[in-house]
Amino acid sequence: MLSTNDDILKAAEDWRKGGRDVALATVVETWGSAPRPVGSNLVIDGEGNFLGSVSGGCVEGAVVTEALDVIESGQPKMLEFGVADETAWKVGLSCGGTIRVYVEKVE
């Protein structure tokens, strides 16, 4: 189930204070019909555990993978996901929208 943003941010704080590596992903822009509004959060730890949602399930896997990279490097990343097109190996949003997701490390 989707959690509220309070739970997610509290989890981010608790996980970090508990000594885990943590990244926070936030939906910063949407175009067309996007499943989750701007400001939605997903928190990811260094093991790939996550809580929250940026797309209702379509692109979370890819965001988690990128988040592990962000945790490693410490450098924030801007990710963009659009309609699933002929480049079928890329993940996309079945609803036809485009979203931009900002991923940063909590440090």
Binding site: L9, K10, A12, E13, K105, V106
Partner: peptide, 14 residues
């Protein structure tokens, strides 16, 4: 995001 910023934010929200 800095942890202290996140902690302050969560306190405001609470």
């Amino acid at each position: 995001m800095k942890l202290d910023l996140l902690t302050t934010l969560n306190a405001e929200r609470a």
